[in-house]
Design a protein around this nucleic acid. Structure first.
Lengths: 336, 336
DNA sequence: ATGAAAGCGCTAACAC
DNA sequence: GTGTTAGCGCTTTCAT
């Protein structure tokens, strides 16, 4: 009359009983503490296997100090670079025994005041924020967090990891200048990354003695803007022989606009983008672009956060990772 | 000496004290039970607001029967259709008060035996499986789950929601036949969806009195296969005037191969893909393709799972949603 | 309609 | 090294 629990999940109690030890001993084995005798550890392990035991995360979360969970807040899933970053994050956090809980802003809009509140309710040990930090509640900022990607604001007491947008833009300008381009147009937009890319464009065109023109400030960073701004730039500055767009989709718009103007790419006008998205591939736009190595950003961000979880008072770090220029068929030497 | 808890998160106790009620009453208000007097409810609500109280998910998970969590198991994040599906899932589950916990197979490979084990440890109330169900542990199958996407196996006691691959393939063949094509090549691959698309292709070419040829069985469903198989098909059956690839990337490969053969698309050979990915857009490949409405798949799957969570013994349903043909510039009337 | 009390399954001091 | 004893913050009978 005592047994008959076949249907319920086994608990640490059953395991302890079967192994002939106390509950605490089982707990120690689970968190593989070094101070357990090999014999007992073995006994516990076999009991676990035999019962097909799986720890209850909620219980350990409640009782312990750490939930073993890292929250990831993201503004838009459709950014493909984020998928790479997620892989990088997982790589490191897996290793450290943490699980990831991803929450996007969409979810939040409908129910919760704050993107991270559901994550906080789960008592995540830290937050990876791929969104504007100003959207976070104060409560979110009380736990260790790291920002990834270029943002408008630079929060206190958090690390920031991004691909260096200034440097990426400089690489593009260098590439274009090396090809002999003197009159270069740039299409920018309203987000944080676009601003940094504009800075890099401006400083490097100057450094290389090129004439830099730009359009699109404050506008959306999409294909349409790329199209409109290209028309605009070519009208005002017909001497332009190369266009650098703040991302690949804007570059696609630029190419369409150039086609409309009967300009050939790259023979008449070279075009470069940014982000190395799938559309930039050799079989598609064959677009010269810049790659940020999203996975590496994830790995670095994870390491920084892990560090901050252990020592919350660590001084904040900014990591600007070096991007890579990917030269493809959309850029070529300027016509003489 | 009693207070001084400013730094810790408030608990249900503090709320109860401030509102002058019992803990149980607060709990009832949280789960908005109808049987609480408006006055008390009001008092509790203001106390919650004042203390900035947020329930501890782990505690309620432990004490209650439901975790309020739905696990999503996915084999590969890079499938862009999945992002749409996720939106559909969120839409419905948000409404129903559930949160989503997404776990991909990558995470699992490194640590856990089973993709869903971390999810099970969190005591998810149900599982959305966007992967082969055979990879799931038996334990996973004890909780309500729904499969999304075409899979090799058809599990018992689970609902399945997919876009109808047969029907989608038939739509493409119809479109091509309507344009006068009589000799149509198809490029298939080894996954579940590809098989279904092949079935649809075969039955509909027959129904329309066309000659259907295919290649690629058992191979990867990627660009390279698309390229190789196109070369192969055109060599063996030079009379082919249209190629239907099992997905957009394979279609991209086909287009590249045709270019190599000095065939123009669509003047000499029409090409169609499947999935309506970004590369199929008018500015890129301008590819005729099939769209599955990922968001709708998500919504339907969510509804089915919700139903099964309430009544586990419900008879399993298969939902094959109707896909949409998207005709673009890569297909045209056959040359006379 | 509301309160009291008993856990949920685990971790964390603390003893031995 | 290993067992004992308290809870973690909440939900849930069960009274009232």
């Amino acid at each position: 009359m005592t047994a008959q629990k076949s249907t319920k999940r086994p608990t640490i109690y059953e395991v302890a009983a079967l192994a002939g030890v106390s509950k605490s001993l089982v707990s120690l084995v689970l968190r593989d503490s070094p101070q357990v005798s090999p014999a007992r550890r073995e006994a516990v392990l076999t009991a676990i296997k035999k019962l097909n035991y799986e720890p209850n995360a909620a219980a350990s979360n409640l009782a312990g100090k750490s939930s073993g969970l890292i929250g990831v807040v993201i503004d838009d899933y459709s950014n493909t670079w984020f998928i790479e970053t997620l892989k990088g994050l997982r790589e490191i956090f897996d290793e450290a025994g943490y699980h990831l809980a991803v929450s996007d802003l969409h979810e939040v809009r409908s129910r919760h005041s704050d993107a991270a509140s559901a994550l906080l309710a789960m008592k995540v040990d830290g937050l990876v924020v791929a969104a504007e930090p100003s959207n976070l509640s104060d409560r979110s900022k009380e736990i260790p967090y790291v920002i990834i990607g270029s943002r408008q604001t630079r929060p206190q007491r958090a690390d920031v990891v991004t691909g260096s947008d200034e440097l990426g833009a400089e690489l593009v300008v260098d590439h274009l200048a090396d090809l002999g381009h003197k009159y270069i147009g740039h299409i920018t937009g309203r987000d944080g990354a676009a601003h940094k890319r504009l800075d890099g464009f401006l400083s490097q065109t100057k450094a290389r003695g090129c004439h830099g023109y730009f359009a699109g400030e404050g506008r959306a960073t999409d294909e349409e803007t790329g199209y409109d701004c290209t028309l605009e730039l070519m009208k005002v500055h017909p001497e332009i022989t190369a266009i650098f767009a703040a991302n690949d989709f804007m570059a696609a718009g630029a190419i369409a606009a150039l086609k409309k103007l009967k300009k050939r790419v790259p023979q008449d006008v070279s075009v470069a983008g940014y982000d190395d998205t799938v559309i930039a591939g050799p079989k598609f736009l064959d677009l010269t672009t810049v790659s940020d190595s999203g996975a590496e950003i994830g790995r670095q961000a994870a390491k920084l956060l892990l560090r901050r979880i252990k020592a919350a008072q660590t001084a904040p770090h900014d990591l600007d990772l070096v991007p890579t220029l990917i030269a493809r068929g959309s850029t070529s030497k300027v016509k003489k």
